[in-house]
Amino acid sequence: MRGTQPAYGMLAAFVVAAPVLVGIAYCAAGVLGLLGDTAGGSVNWSVLADAATWRSVGWSFWAAGASTFLALVGAVAVAALCRSTRSSDRAARALAVLPLPIPHIVAALVGLLVLAQSGLLARIAYSLGVVGAPAEVPVLVYDGLGVGFILTMAAKEIPFLALIAISLAGGDLRPVEESARTLGASPAELFRRITLPLLLRGMMPATVAVFVFVFGSYEVAAMLGPTAPAPLPVLITESYAGASLERRTEAYLLSLLALLIACVAVAAHELLRRDMFRRLPG
């Protein structure tokens, strides 16, 4: 049956992707001033020459990279350390995945309540005598480094990455580890040279997916991110809602930029998936 009618499959691919392609086309038309809701005239590329734009892009890359890295470490820790059928390990695996469907906006609210200067963490620090007043608490939300955003997003994305890691550790990795053990690998060697590299390689597509998702996500960035540089998705909405038509052109241009980055991530995701299926046995 497989591969008999590729035309239908390609049509299906087009149907799913069409709204995004239309969106890209409209953004391009908006940049060129063809939509009638912008200033029109000559194309205004100045936003690309603006250092603030690239600070926003840079911030979003940094914050998405850092939170993806932390989430990956957390997920790998759960999958590698809690593999047995012992009840504590089973509990750890279940707990790791449980927060998966918590909406981002709820995660952002909880992040705010925990990390704000008079938040739960600051109160715990006060009760331990570490700080005396909210003003002495380090700023963890709306901060330039994006600590609050990064921690909240990392916590939000651990469940998904843990789900993938646990499934790899419980399935595809087992036969390879078994052969390595038969060939005389010590437990430490087995972990360092087989389990960890294979786990990481198997998780690469999901990791890229998490990165691009965090990069483009709006709610947590709007609620916990800094005002300057504004996270890229926030900058886009602010430009779009801005009063002047010039700013709307900027929003189209910035959207195109973000969509381009997303397309690169999609391509990387597919290439990594192909490699994973080639190299991972089972």
């Binding site: 299906a12 691919a13 969106g23 890209i24 908006g30 998702f213 909405t237 779009y240 597919e270």
Partner: peptide
């Protein structure tokens, strides 16, 4: 790969860019 990329594209595209790109339509 094209098919899988096509299905992943609407998931990976930042929702704000979809909103901006499709609002006019």
């Amino acid at each position: 790969m094209v098919g899988s990329a096509a299905a992943f594209l609407p998931v990976a595209a930042p929702p704000v860019t979809l909103g901006v790109g499709l609002n006019y339509t």
